[in-house]
Each structure stands twice: as C-alpha cells, then as structure tokens.
Design a protein around this nucleic acid. Structure first.
Length: 567
RNA sequence: GGCCCCAUCGUCUAGGCAGGUCUAGGACACCGGGUUUUCAACCCGGCAACAGGGGUUCAAAUCCCCUUGGGGCUACCA
C-alpha cells in the first residue's frame, strides 16, 4: 500500500517543469536582524549571496529584518553597514541606497504585511489565536512530560473577526497563525542538499503576526522575498527546517511558480563546539577569569564600567555584560579573546581581502588547488554547485596564513591605506608618520602576518625616549646575558662617533665591531635592539637605529645602561 | 523526545553525482633541517585520513542500507 504516497510524490514533482531553470535576472539578498555586530557567520552568508549576484550579473540587496522590537539595538544597523563596507560587500538596493522595492527596513513595511495577513484571514488560510505565552508554555511542557513534540494545530472552529475584536478589548493577546494545509508531503528542492521531504503534519501552524502587530520572520521574509523578486535564497542550514513552512506559505500567497531557489549552506562551527556564536567571547573571558588567581574584582568591574553586582552576576553565569564591557575587561586582564564579530578581526589587524578569501573557502572551493584568490578571481570562479554540505570549523591559524599572503598580494598602496585606517582606529602613536614615511617603514616589516604585527614592530620609534616599555622576557633573554651590557656600552661609544646614521654606515660599524670581537652580529645587535626598542622584536637593526636617529638612540642606550647596568 | 542535515589527514578540503587511472592530491597546523641581526617571512623534508558494519559489483572513498558520531531546528528570535 505504498502506492498513494508514491502517487502524491509524483504529482508534486510533476508540477515542477524544470527543477532548476536559471532565472533571467538573479536577485539575492542578505537579511540580517540588527541585534548586534555582524559576526563571521553572517559575513559568510552575505558573501555567498554577493558572490552569486556578481557572478551572474544579478542584483544583491540588503534588507534589515527588524521585526523584533525587544531585541533590536539602535546602533546595530550602522554596525552591520560598516562591517559590510569594510569587507567590500556592496549592495545594489537597500539602506542608504534605496531601490524600487523599498523600504528595506521591515519595520517600515508593516502595512504591506497586514494586507497579506488580511488576505489569508479572509480566505480562511490563517486564523486568530488568543493564548498567552504562559498558556503556550504550559502546553509545551505538558507535551514534553509525555515525551511528545508540541505541534500547534488550529481548532476545529476558527475564531471570527468579532471574537478577535472582543479578545483585544478584553486585553487578551491576539496573534495570527498560518494554517498549514495538511495531508501532504512537502518537497523542498535545495540546490546543495537535493530534495528534502517534510510531512505537513510535522509543521506547526506558525505565527505570522505577533500581538504587537509586527510580522514574524517566517512571514515577513516570504512576503519580502516575493515582492523584492528574490530568485535565490542563500542562507545557513539552520533555516532548512523553516523552509517547508515558508514554501507552503509562499504558495498560498503568491502561487508556486514564483518560488525562489533555496540554497542552504553548512554552518560554521567553533572549535569550542557548536555553531560559532557571539556568546563565545564572554564565555572565553569567564573561563580565563576563573583560571586566574588574585583577580582584582573591584578594578576589573571599573575597567569594564559595570557595577560590582553586574560582575558578580557574570561570574555566577547569571548575566552577560555587553560587548564593550567584555572587551574592556579582556584588555584590562591582557587577554586575547577569540575573534567572532567582523570588528574583532578589524581590530586584530586582518585585511578585508584575506577575510573575504578565507570566508569564501569555508564551504566552497574552486575545484582546483587554488587557495589564495583575489576578489575578481573569486567572482569568476564562484558557483553554487561547488558549495559543500558538511559543516566547517573556523580555523584562525589558516586565516592568519591567508592574511600573511594577502599582506604581500595587495600591494604597497593598498597596504598603506589599510595600515593608516588600522592605526587611526587603534589610536596608535605610529599615526604620526606621514604617508611617505609610513610606506617606507611598512616595507621594513616585510613578512608580517597582520597589521597589528607591523604596528607592534614600529611603535618604539614613535614614543618618547623615556616612555619605552622594556619587555621583561627580552631583558632577561638579552640584556642579562654575560657581557651584554659591556658590549652595549662599547656600541654606544662607537655610535656617538658616527656622524651620519645611514644604513651602510651602521651596518659597517656593527659588523666591524662583531668581527673585531670575533662574535656573531647577534651578540652586538641584540642588546642594542632591546635598548632602543624595549623588546627583541623590531625591524632589522640597521633600519631600527636609522629610523630612530642618533640622538634618541644614544639617549635610550644611556637609559638602558642606567636602568639595567648595575643590577 | 520528535523532525531535518552531515560524515576523507588535527583543521579547510580535492576526488563521490558519470565505481577501476586513489600505494587518496593540495593548503594550514605540527615535527625535523636550512637561511638568519630579533620576530616574522622564505626554502627543503616528514608525519597524517576514506567513522564502523553489512550489502550491490569482476571491482567501492565513490552506489544502497544499518549503526555510531557531529550539527541544526523544535519561540509572539531571526
């Protein structure tokens, strides 16, 4: 007796003429909800949509899904816009740009949704619902106790408009649910998953309009994707289970012919387990604090600009401070938290070119051995059918390697531009360098892995002589070595006699000295390096001394001799 | 609990749909060596995988089933 099912499946399949016809004009969208910073998972989704639109000469649009009045944060939209802009992902229609299907904020499209809700209501395809959240929770718990799933289904008699009005007058919550047509198998044809079947009986009559009059995600996204003529819905796999419901809703609203192609990409998972989440940073901070001893909680709370109670709540896992507080506390403790949000990567000194390249390869590949690719190359190579099905882990090591390669690949001018922006954001003293100088000193750092590395290497030359911070490890490793201070004193005398600090002169002087003492250059160069830089990480010793100039070099050597000489 | 997705080196992955050419390729990480004025970069070499079981077949990483494992969803969140 399997015949009926087979027949049903067949009839569903046969209504689709060509499963994957290529639309004339591709339209993709990125539809974030403004609840905080854009994180890498979101950036990857945006990128894939963008890449596909660019590849196929289509349109990419940005739509802000601000339908949750409780969770929206006022600055989030701007943050998302900033982050996409930094990445170089530009939209053809959306906020700040407008477009024929605007507005692009869902909160400004309420009337539009209402019209469609009313239509469904009138056609008996949707119905009013008056339960409170508490009542629903109770029913859910009850089902759970019986080890059953809770699937909301319409009552035999649908409430009338009058009853809805009465309920509203009585102060009851009034929501609208979509009545999922029963007794059918819903076939979702996904471009990367293939055909996925769902039983209608397993899909609840989901809410399409909340009590506050706002649409839910599952409703607004269907209406907007249709109105905005979206042809490809490319999103994370976490939406696959929403798709049958959305598809049935779409069909009820607009008919099945206009259905978009669905592309559900794998989820990016964290090395901490589970999908990469914004909660990881506070979690990492908490773990680190617990591991540390003698943490000054009063000062920590001050650093994070939170109250003592708030900090206690955080330590007891009862509450989580906001991101700026988390960042500030991590900075106070000298911790490096895992980057999650796009801004985290900006602050850590990554290049957008490297981010884009890395993100593109997370769940996609060009089919050959190419890995380091520029934007144009990615666009040319991109194709939906090379998106992989399995989840991928976000590996920061590989990102660093990509960044190192792109630091060379982008070219001097671009690198200098990125560096300038990085320095300004970080408020680094290296900002004092003009463009010509900045260009020259960046070249001294060839092979650096991030912009932060370059900054760290160059910083010494832009602080006052008495502001040099001496890294204890470097001091121990270099200055405390037998003979180091004597050697440094000798170097000081020689340098004092040198009039012109050119590279050749310095090299001649230091190499000559090493030869004369029958030691390697390192014996001479290292104490000098630590004396002027405060650390054993700097550009070449000749570059470093020349950059600093005679006066400062001598002053810093004297400071060092005084400070570490007689200990 | 229910439903859905996924499964190749530690990690990202090629190969899978059109089974033999796969003693499974590349990259990152790691280990060893080289270069060297530090860090980094760079060069050479090495380690390392088809989750398990059953089928189908002359032949399975590749097709089918089961088990196991991982992930997602199960909201008046998106």
């Amino acid at each position: 007796m399997t015949l009926p099912l087979d027949l049903l499946t067949f009839s569903l399949l046969s209504t689709v003429r060509n499963p994957f016809p290529m639309p004339d004009h591709v339209v993709t969208r990125f539809a974030p909800s403004p609840t905080g910073y854009l994180h890498v998972g979101g950036a990857r989704t945006a990128l894939f949509n963008w890449l596909w639109a660019r590849r196929s000469g289509g349109t990419f649009l940005l739509r802000i899904e601000d339908t949750d009045q409780k969770r929206n944060t006022p600055t989030a939209t701007q943050q998302v816009i900033d982050d996409l802009t930094w990445l170089g992902i530009t939209w053809d229609e959306g906020p700040q740009k407008g477009g024929p299907q605007g507005p692009y904020f869902q909160s400004e499209r309420l009337e539009l949704y209402d019209g469609h809700v009313q239509r469904l209501l009138d056609e008996g395809k949707a119905y009013y619902c008056f339960e409170t959240t508490q009542e629903l929770d109770a029913r859910r718990k009850e089902a759970e106790a019986k080890k059953q799933g809770f699937i909301y289904r319409r009552p035999p008699q649908l409430p009338s408009e009058q009853e809805a009005a009465d309920a509203r007058a009585a102060g009851r919550p009034v929501t609208v649910r979509f009545a999922i047509p029963q007794d059918q198998t819903i076939l979702v044809s996904d471009l990367v998953r293939g055909d996925v079947r769902f039983e209608a009986s397993e899909i609840a009559d989901f809410i399409i309009r909340k009590n506050d009059g706002f649409p839910t995600y599952n409703f607004a996204c269907v209406v907007d994707d249709f109105l905005m003529k979206v042809t490809h819905v490319i999103r994370g796999q976490e939406h696959l289970n929403n798709t049958p419901g959305q598809q049935v809703l779409w069909t009820a609203l607009f008919g099945g012919d206009s259905l978009p192609k669905y592309v559900h990409m794998s989820v990016t998972v964290s090395d901490a387990g589970g999908k990469l989440s914004k909660r990881e940073r506070p979690k990492a901070l908490l773990t680190a604090i617990k591991k540390m001893q003698d943490v000054d909680l009063v000062r920590l709370a001050q650093a994070g600009r939170i109250s003592a109670e708030a900090l206690r709540g955080f330590l007891d896992k009862k509450s989580t401070p906001d991101m700026p507080s988390v960042d500030a506390m991590a900075a106070f403790l000298g911790l490096h938290l895992p980057e999650i949000n796009v801004v985290d990567f900006v602050k850590s000194g990554y290049l957008p070119e490297a981010m884009i390249n890395f993100l593109a390869l997370l769940g996609w590949n060009p089919g050959d051995d190419r890995e380091i690719m520029g934007l144009e190359e990615l666009i040319q190579a991109f194709d939906l059918d090379r998106i992989s099905k399995s989840n991928s882990l976000f590996d920061r090591n590989k990102l660093v390697a990509f960044n190192t390669e792109h630091m060379r690949k982008v070219g001097k001018e671009t690198l200098r531009r990125h560096m300038r922006a990085y320095l300004e954001r970080a408020g680094s003293p290296v900002q004092k360098a003009d463009d010509a100088l900045l260009g020259r000193i960046i070249e001294m750092c060839d092979g650096a892995r991030t912009l932060a590395d370059i900054e760290a290497k160059l910083r010494f030359a832009f602080v006052e002589d008495d502001e040099v911070r001496y890294d204890p490890k470097s001091v121990k490793k270099v200055l405390r070595k037998v003979g180091a201070m004597e050697c440094l004193a000798l170097v000081r005398d020689k340098l004092a006699q040198l009039d012109h600090f050119t590279e050749e002169a310095l090299e001649g002087l230091l190499r000559g000295l090493a030869e004369q003492k029958e030691v390697g250059l390192g014996k001479v160069a290292q104490p000098l390096r630590v004396a002027i830089c405060g650390s054993n990480v700097s550009p070449s010793i000749f570059d470093s001394v020349k950059l600093l100039g005679k006066e400062s070099t001598l002053a810093r050597i004297d400071n060092t001799l005084k400070k570490f000489g007689d200990e």
